[in-house]
Design a binder for these strands. Structure first.
Lengths: 199, 199
DNA sequence: TAAAAAACTGACCGTTCAGTCTAATGGTAT
DNA sequence: ATACCATTAGACTGAACGGTCAGTTTTTTA
């Protein structure tokens, strides 16, 4: 009863092969023909495994975020303090930056033809990194490494910073970008305001 | 010798009418037919004023950023300290957030069919807010309001934070978002790390 | 007021797209 | 060997796309 090939694995392969395309060109501008090309597969084959472009995209998004959170949990164990974890999280964002599906997702959900439940599903996926960040923050406050304040606010702020830095992809070298991510965390930790009076 | 209508004004009208469309649906997913609809104009009329969809888009981007920097310069005068200006800049980002062309721009430049000089032009436009931010930072350091450090680093960090926060558009209320922008600046100013030893 | 120029229209064109259909392929069980 | 069926290939479809153009209407010119 065993199949020639593991169908689930084929679906994953197709999705991963397609990630770079969606990440670089966006959802609408990526054609099914191009998807066929990068997969060395025919249209019939792709449509045998996915009933639509939309479904393939959603599948890829889910897969990517599952991968993201899984590899973070693996990394997280090697850090102890929450401050180390914040720097580690910054690194994790950098490692993931080469294929930023973020823009494609925004384009996808902004397009009119999206059902309510799909929207809900997408929002739930997007919230994963927020939760990850929030947990670190809460730990940091419990351990008194961080000042006590609204954890949700801080979660949004740190996540926005790390997301926003990804736009430097086209402007700076990779090592420079990594340095800036860490500098961003350092800045948020220690602040930039001069505590001495002027003069 | 005066024309019935000012051609330059018509071009601007068309561009502004189209802004929301590009902002919400992205570049590729916005069709010329839709652009005609929101302008109450025929295809021929649009193409009479713009030689291509691409040109219309570039024109809109330029216009938007000119508007952005102009209205900022008007606001800036009412602030004195650089810290006030940073909060003011955050507000300015919020005011501009309803039609974020940012994603459309990313999609546009990532699409393959873009000439080198157009790419250069686009990058120059995108750099406008960076420069704006940098000037505030330099002033802040000169006035000793801010700690001395690499101004470029800080410019990238603050800009990334303000850009990144815009993705909260779909998740939070407008007043909540405005509060978070200010909280973001406050956080960067004073830092989050506890300066007391733990225990 | 007649002629020229500017502004505009919408049918039309070639191309590209997501998705469909059917025939071919090849592994597996009997 | 044969029958079966999961899988694949790629020609095909209809809709939608960006862009063009011959021709009409409106305004300016002189």
């Amino acid at each position: 009863m065993k199949r020639r090939k593991d169908v689930a694995q084929i679906k994953k392969d197709i999705a991963w092969n397609t990630k770079e395309l969606f990440a670089q060109k966006g959802y609408a501008a990526t054609s099914m023909e191009e998807i066929c090309t990068v997969n060395n597969r025919s249209k019939g084959s792709i449509y045998y495994h996915f009933k639509s472009k939309e479904e393939l995209f959603m599948y890829l998004i889910k897969l990517s975020y599952e991968e993201w959170i899984a590899s973070w949990h693996a990394k997280e164990e090697q850090y102890t303090t929450s401050i180390e974890k914040l720097y580690g999280l910054a690194d994790h964002y950098v490692d993931d930056m080469e294929n930023p599906l973020h823009n494609a997702i925004n384009e996808f959900v902004s397009g009119q033809s999206i059902s309510a439940e799909m929207m809900e599903e997408m929002l739930a996926i997007i919230r994963i990194p927020y939760t990850t960040c929030k947990n670190i923050i809460i730990q940091g406050m419990e351990q008194r490494e961080l000042k006590k304040q609204n954890p949700d606010d801080l979660m949004y702020i740190i996540n926005s910073l790390l997301n926003g830095l990804s736009t430097l992809y086209y402007e700076l070298e990779f090592t420079e970008i990594r340095r800036l991510y860490r500098a961003g965390i350092a800045t948020i930790l220690s602040g930039i305001q001069n505590t001495y009076e002027k003069n």
